[in-house]
Structures are given as structure tokens and as C-alpha cells.
Design a protein around this nucleic acid. Structure first.
Lengths: 348, 348
DNA sequence: TTGAAAGCGATACCAA
DNA sequence: TTGGTATCGCTTTCAA
């Protein structure tokens, strides 16, 4: 009886197929009159297949509208052509841009990027990483170098190439491509001192690295004899509005002349708007320094100064390192500093 | 000889294993003293497993540091818990925000989002979709409603729930959640006319939907007796700088008083900066209208007017529709208009 | 240059 | 409540 319940397949398909009738490699192979492995090779290593066979296969592929199943392929080959990237937030332009460059470089080599957002404290980073690893990416990009012991264990156990970015450490998990927040704090303090500013204020996002840069800067300023830095901390996600109110709060606390350091250009930009609306001259009365070189900040607003981070370089270097590691190449350096630059257009 | 090359496995693992020694369901099962299917159930349907068994399994899982392989799971179950999303650009805040809301809603239900950027004409949308479909997502979100015949074929053949966004059509491929660019064009024209502006200029990105809104608006303005709209088209990706130069070019062409419509808030914002730098009063001498309500534009700059699109609603509705469709629920409506709103703070 | 057979690591289906 | 067995669709390995 049961045998009769399995309907004959007029298209010649296997009778064991489920209801979902997507085209498989076997279908293509049958139509082309070759074996499945030949079709697989035609797709992955076209040079290893005779031209005539290749033509037959390609014809069969376009006739059937075959779309490869990378789940099956990845399972069998242990190569998913997927790279995971963990960033704090997709709506923060500096991270989004980094990922865009990263992603573009990888796409060219046939890889796709699986994005994970770590900026939600409700969801632990560990759970996020675990979820992402369950897709068996061939490599992974992380933002920052501080990970819990559990995360480190998880990442190392995955045994895949790994790049940390957006920070620097002498002891990366694998390889780090970033810049030194400490050196930025020092450089900005020195810059401020060299300009002769007496009063310094900060508008800083509630973000670990932003706070660290600020701390270093404040310490360094003391060495220059500048103390009593007025602070304003704003919550994330940062936006123009919070930059405005950050400056407003500093001004309300009595800040008048001097320089303000903001932990991102979007905050700096918001502060600039607040200053303008109060008729304060920037940079003559109040100088504003940002971070990130977002939105071509200094090109658009010559009054602003910023710390430029080369996201394009960071993203593509990270991508190339992962690709090299996947191809089993050994790296000379595991700590790559892409540096930063203080960009100033107008001078007071 | 060869048999001696295969080392004995002290942990009792199968000898057929490859070099990559990641923990599998079978390893967990062996350690827990149950079958693989029981471990699978403990993970996916904990209620269907006896409490004692569950404990044993969970212990084994944490002892081994097991991370499920979703490639294998997806292949076997035909459910990947992956949803694809195609957006023009990740660095455009309005799309990034939509995806963030979309993604958050899906994460809560155990789904992950696979992102694809369609804004690169070098890579055809068809190839992008094909690549994405090869991961066998359980559903897909598209931006816009215009797709080539090849793309439509590909999408329909995938036979998965599909949501189009950021536009509206009476004939969606499956379901559409968006707003009407035509109605926006009309509404903005009517708004401009109602304010009594005589001269109208536009700063528009080289983007199909942006141009369409502009075209509709210009036609509608003619009905109000307003003609000779001065245009400035800027290339994508848009940024503050291009907004500045957009307005600069209009002013150079002789534009003086009136209103400027920009195809995005970032352009509007750039235009505002240019106006301020020239000492033009906004909105008294020159009014500026944006689009998108990006960066809390009107909260920050009361001088600006914008067209608010509720990305939060659009993203989460799109997510919920996909989830419902995946759960085999039928939908009442396949065309969902999330609407828009003209937001004005200051009046001239 | 091509093919046969044995997995990859999970789940579905049916039985116990 | 638990388990055996047959897949899922592809690639690897080895042979022809």
C-alpha cells in the first residue's frame, strides 16, 4: 500500500522528495546528463571541467533556475563563505561605515557578512557570539578588545580567524587592527594645551572607550596645568539633540570660553548648533573638537576640529587579514595600528 | 600503516572525525548517556523532555561547550531562523534604523538578519538576491517595489514569505509595508502652496524614489500656479557636504527667497549650514524642508520642516508579518500603509 | 576529466 | 518520554 502513496514524479525527480520542491544539484545533474559532483565542480572550479561539459551544466542551471544551497555546501565543506561582524550599533555611522568597507572587500572574494549588534546590554555579548557562531562563520570581526572570559573561551574554541578592531592591545586574541584611544587622549590634550586654551569641557557618551579617552586626556591636561575640566555625560545612542543639550548643560554650569571635547562628531555637531543658536562664535569664543570624522565634519564645518579615524583602511585591512588567514597564510604582524589624525581647518 | 596514523581518541570520539574537532550533538549525547534526538529535543522543545533528562543534557552541554550547528539543523529542518533584508545602503541612517527595529523584533523570536546592500550598481540586484537566497532564509525583506522580471522570478521561486517596504503598490509580490511617495509629493506641494511660497527649489539625490517624489511635487505645484522650480541633483551617497553644495548651486543660479525641498534630512541639514554661513535667515528668508526625520532633525533644528516616516513602526510591522507568515498564518491585508507626517516646528 | 560512495551534523518520522 | 533510521543537499576522498 504505502508504495502507492508515493506518487510517481513525471519530471523524473526522486520520489523521496519533500513538499518543498526547490531545485537541487541532482536535478541539474540529471538534466545535464552528468553526475552531481561534476555540477558542483562546474560551479566551484570551472577550470577543472571540460568546456563542453561546462556548457551543458550551465544550460541546465539556467533552465532550472538552480540556486545553490549553501547550508548543504557549508556543512559538507566546512566553509560557509560567511564572516561574522560584531559591532555596537548599526545606526552609528562610524561603525556602519567600517562595516561597509569591510563588507565590500569581502563581497569581492565571494564572502558575505553576518552582522551582530552588541549594543544591547539586555542581550549578553556571550549569547550574541554564541548565536553567531552557530552559523559557523569562516571568520569573525569584533569591535573592541575587552571581552569576558566566557566570550574569549567561546571565540577561541571556534578556532576560526578573528580580528579585533576599533582599539589596540599588545595581546590580541588573534589579530587586532585599530588605533590607540590612549594616544588619542594624550594627543588631544597636547593639542589643546598647544592652542593655549585655559578652560576645557567635555561632552562624552556613556561608552567605555569614550570615557577612557576622556580620562587619559584629563590626566594629561593636568600635566599641562589645566584642571577643573567641566564634564557632561550623555546617554547612548548619541544624536544631534544630545550634543545640543550636552553643551547647554555645560553652559548652564557656567562654562564660557575655551574648548569642548566631544566623544563623537555627532555630539560635536549638536554642540555647534547649540552654540550658534546662542550666538556664541565658534571657534573664536568656543572651540569644539569632535571624534571620528563622521559626515565629513570638518569639510562641512570648518569651525570644527576632529580626530580622523580611517574607517576605510581599518575595514579593508581587517577583511584582507581574515581572507589571508582563511587561506592559511601566516601573518607577520598581529597588531596593526591604523593611527589617527587631528584635523583642523580654521584656526582661531 | 595508515591505521596507525589515525590516533586513538581518548575522549571516546568517533575515529572518522576530521581534523576540525568541534563538539557535535553526538558528543553531547554520548556524555549525557542519551540519544542525539533527545539532545536535539532538549534544545528545541525542552517541555517534551523529562526534567531529569534535561538536567543531564544541560550539564553535558555546558561541560563540552557545545555550540549547535545551524547549517546542519537548517538543512534537516528546512528552517534556518535567518531572515534576509535587502537595503540600498547601511550607511544611510533611515535604512539603518529601519533594519535596527526590524532586527530587534526578529531577534526576540530567535531569528537573525542577513543584510544585503543593493546600492552598488556594479553588482546586479539579481545576483545579490541569488546570493542571499543561497543561504535559504526563512523570509526576506526588500526595500522598494520595483524589481526586474528576473528578480521577481527568483523571489517567487524561493517560495518564502516576503515583505516589500519603503514604498507602496496595489500589487505586491507578497505583502508591502510602506508609504506612498506620490502622496508625499502631493502633500508637500500643497503644504508649500498653503504657506504662500512663490519660489521653490529642490535638492534631490540621484535616487529613483527621491526623483519620483520630486516629479509628483512639481506637477502638483503647477496646479497651484507655481512653476519654474529650480533643481539641483546631487549624487549618492548623500552627506552634509553635498547638501551644502546643493544649496550653493541653487543660490548661484539666482535663487533668493522661498522654499527648498531636499530629498533627505541630511541634505536639508547641509543646506541649512550653507544658508547660515551666508547669513541667510532660515526659515524667514529661506525655508528648508527635508525628508525622513533623521537625527531628530526638527527637534534639533526647529527651523527645519520635514516629512516624518515612522521607521520603528515600519520595521516592526514588517518583522511581525514575516513571523506570522512563517507560522503559516494568513494575513488579512497585504498592503499596509504606515503613512507619513509633515512636521513643522517654527512658523515663518 | 569524470564518477561512486561516504560523510558533514542535525531533524523528521515512526516505533517502542 | 525516548530512540533508530532515513534523510536534508552538498563536497570530500579515492578510483577509474
Amino acid at each position: 500500500m504505502t508504495e502507492y502513496n508515493t506518487p510517481q514524479d513525471p519530471a523524473g525527480r526522486s520520489a523521496t522528495r519533500n513538499s518543498n520542491d526547490s531545485v537541487t544539484l541532482a536535478d541539474v545533474a540529471r538534466l545535464a546528463g552528468v553526475s552531481t559532483i561534476t555540477v558542483s565542480r562546474a560551479l566551484n572550479y570551472p577550470d577543472k571541467v571540460a568546456t563542453k561539459t561546462l556548457e551543458k551544466v550551465n544550460r541546465a542551471i539556467s533552465q532550472t533556475g538552480y540556486v545553490p544551497n549553501l547550508l548543504a555546501g557549508g556543512l559538507a565543506s566546512r566553509r560557509t563563505r560567511l564572516i561574522a561582524a560584531i559591532i555596537p550599533s548599526i545606526t552609528n555611522l562610524v561603525y556602519a561605515e567600517t562595516i561597509q568597507y569591510f563588507s565590500n572587500s569581502l563581497n569581492e572574494s565571494g564572502y558575505q557578512v553576518l552582522l551582530g549588534e552588541s549594543g544591547y546590554p539586555e542581550q549578553s555579548e556571550q549569547k550574541l557570539i554564541s548565536t553567531v557562531l552557530s552559523r559557523r562563520p569562516d571568520g569573525i570581526l569584533l569591535t573592541g578588545v575587552n571581552h569576558s572570559a566566557d566570550c574569549r573561551r567561546l571565540l577561541l574554541a571556534a578556532n576560526i580567524p578573528l580580528v579585533e578592531t576599533w582599539d589596540l592591545t599588545p595581546t590580541p586574541l588573534d589579530t587586532v587592527v585599530g588605533f590607540s584611544h590612549e594616544r588619542i587622549g594624550v594627543a588631544v590634550a597636547d593639542f589643546i594645551a598647544s592652542k593655549g586654551y585655559q578652560h576645557v569641557g567635555t561632552i562624552i557618551a556613556s561608552d567605555r572607550r569614550a570615557r577612557f579617552r576622556e580620562k587619559v586626556m584629563i590626566n594629561r591636561l593636568e600635566m599641562h596645568g589645566i584642571e577643573d575640566v567641566l564634564r557632561s555625560e550623555v546617554s547612548v545612542p548619541t544624536n544631534l539633540h544630545r550634543g545640543r543639550s550636552g553643551l547647554a548643560s555645560l553652559l548652564d554650569k557656567g562654562f564660557r570660553h575655551g574648548v569642548i571635547w566631544c566623544s563623537s562628531d555627532i555630539l560635536a555637531h549638536g554642540a555647534l548648533i547649540e552654540a550658534q543658536s546662542r550666538g556664541i562664535k565658534v571657534p573664536q569664543e568656543l572651540a569644539i573638537i569632535g571624534f571620528g570624522d563622521q559626515n565629513f565634519a570638518v569639510d562641512t564645518y570648518p569651525a570644527l576640529t576632529t580626530v580622523r579615524i580611517d574607517r576605510s583602511r581599518m575595514g579593508s585591512i581587517a577583511a584582507n587579514i581574515l581572507l589571508a588567514r582563511i587561506a592559511q597564510q601566516e601573518l607577520k604582524e598581529h597588531v596593526i595600528d591604523v593611527g589617527f589624525e587631528i584635523i583642523e581647518r580654521e584656526t582661531t
